[in-house]
Design a protein around this nucleic acid. Structure first.
Lengths: 337, 337
DNA sequence: TGTTAGCACTCACATATCTCGACTGCTAAA
DNA sequence: TTTAGCAGTCGAGATATGTGAGTGCTAACA
């Protein structure tokens, strides 16, 4: 992939074809391109260009006497080399984004729904997996009936609690000692660092083993639970697009959207890329006829989550990228509330 | 509705027709019924019975020279008067249910998914709305940076916490006084009883107003949040059923499944009915060509949530009702863990 | 009165055939 | 390298036709 060596005219034709296809979802003929985008050359010229582009794998023909449609490769090229994000009217998008999101709280609560409403595509929100969240403080509070409450404060502000059982024979200062112990054992560690086998408990503190183990179990639960925090919204939006008049496409789409684990994996993205655009199926990724755009967000330098938009291959990349970008700005500014 | 006055033979024919349709999803002819279910009479007799049943609204004909299919009314009659739940092989179902649900914890975590896997229909789980949850205890704990943590313990064991801001000029015993105040104001109240306008704050305690209001806001949030706790799983299962070869049906199905508020309303059911079977569209309920079965569950006499199964009208009512029933037994027994 | 055989009738579905026209690829000339 | 011209392809839609499953009706029968 990634041959940048397309002549300007080929680029122009490719862009014309994709722009047109994104709107009408119909094979585009040489005549249509000439009329709308390239009046200065003849249809025959365009035809010969088209057949070259087809040979290069950018276009396909549903049948011999029809116009052409872009291939996945074409969309990828389009996003990488043709699409100009810089001229997005960010003011306008910003206004919409700001209007819809009253506060950062809102983003977490309704992020997927709102992004879906703005873009008109199915959207997802994934809260970052707990692995690299650091335990900032841990408290233990006496309750009743021989139970206590353990509170874990993390560096991204989330507080988790869990009721645990105390041993029967609690001495007066048991809670305070346990508190100190837990602080010593856990504060500063990341969630990922806490593992089952972990045993840094001194022999003499055997009395606290039960508590200690309950806390570890709790952290493990937390770890697993937050890995699953994926919200998908606006699934029904796909029916607005003619490619999903075909049940098989719907089915395939639903299959991607309902496999949470896979979807989480896709949303994680690769490495530290801020935006990730996946188009069509690649090895090990089954996104046939679909495109998935994901973005990673930070607040105060800390990764908080990913937002994704999924739709047909011919999605409005510009709009979606624009919205995701402005959402990033909103979160970064973080001014409201 | 609810004419029980069908002759035994009509009942038998109706049952035959529905049973057959549930399996094959194809219009049933008089000959087919005779062959499989009623060899003792002629097809002509069956035909005349069929046309009477059709006149009564139990059957429809896709076209004049085709067999008949059951109407929503027929399914309702079937569930109410024909289907015999008592002879469900509960031992077998219980085994499956028990095998899949390793513990009660599992039910909350993966309930929808597992029910969907067992029944092979799309399933939902809704955690009971917070309204009639009672606040059992409330604690306030000093943190740092002029913030404190408020903990609310409810009678169903859930603990919620929220970080709140303290006023700048905190006196030594501020936290303790505030704690007593909050306890006095909230303990014993149900979530529903806490409302915004509420103001039982003495004039002299003006200093605590800010805290008080933050707690109220938090409870309100809690109220709204838990109303939303609905998990839908197995959406893609519908593609296993031929009626969803048609995109319009899929679309309609998705529309029902994605409108969470409406779905929550439907799952709440009416009054104190344990099981609720809704078939087809009724006034104000848009379930055209679909059936929704919901069940309400209690643990220790406290309502904890609802589980629902949604699918085509000709769903396997016996199986679904059996599974939901056994799930109830499992939760009631509550023996494991 | 209820049941049955017989028969005419209906209509979805599948298949075949045809036309139309939107495109293309190719060729030869500019 | 570009262009006009033209033959050729093929999907989509319209029309016609046969087939068979299944019904409603009627008249005879128990």
């Amino acid at each position: 992939m990634g041959e940048t060596n397309l002549t300007e005219r080929k680029k122009k034709i490719l862009k014309a074809l994709i722009d047109s296809y994104i709107n009408d979802v119909e094979p585009i003929s040489s005549a249509a391109i000439q009329k709308q985008y390239l009046p200065e050359v003849s249809t025959a010229t365009i035809r010969s260009e088209l057949s070259m582009l087809e040979e290069m794998g950018y276009l396909t023909q549903p049948h011999v006497s029809s116009g052409r449609i872009p291939s996945s490769k074409a969309y990828k090229y389009y996003v990488e080399h043709i699409l100009d994000i810089s001229d997005i009217d960010s003011a306008q998008i910003r206004e919409i984004v700001n209007e819809k999101f009253q506060s950062v709280q809102e983003v977490v609560k309704n992020g997927a729904k709102i992004v879906s409403d703005i873009t008109n595509y199915t959207s997802m929100l994934m809260i970052t997996s707990a692995d690299n969240i650091v335990i900032k403080d841990i408290k233990i509070i006496d309750m009743y009936d021989n139970t206590a409450l353990v509170l874990i404060v993390t560096d991204n502000g989330v507080i988790k609690n869990k009721q645990i059982d105390l041993p029967h024979d609690v001495k007066e200062n048991f809670i305070e000692v346990a508190g100190g112990l837990l602080r010593k054992a856990f504060v500063g560690k990341s969630i990922a660092e806490v593992t089952n086998g972990d045993d840094c408990l001194d022999k003499e503190l055997e009395a606290f083993r039960s508590i200690y183990e309950q806390v570890i179990a709790f952290v493990m639960d937390f770890k697993n639970a937050t890995e699953e925090q994926l919200y998908v919204e606006g699934t029904e939006k796909i029916f607005d697009y003619p490619e999903y008049k075909d049940v098989d496409n719907v089915r395939q789409f639903m299959s991607v959207v309902s496999h949470r684990e896979k979807l989480c994996g896709l949303m994680e993205g690769e490495g530290d890329i801020e935006y990730c655009v996946r188009i069509g199926s690649e090895d090990s990724v089954d996104l046939a006829n679909m495109a998935l755009i994901t973005a990673k967000y930070n607040i105060n330098g800390k990764e908080v989550g990913h937002v994704g938009v999924i739709g047909p291959e011919r999605m409005d990349y510009k709009k979606v990228l624009g919205v995701l970008k402005e959402l990033g700005v909103l979160l970064q500014d973080n001014k409201k509330e």
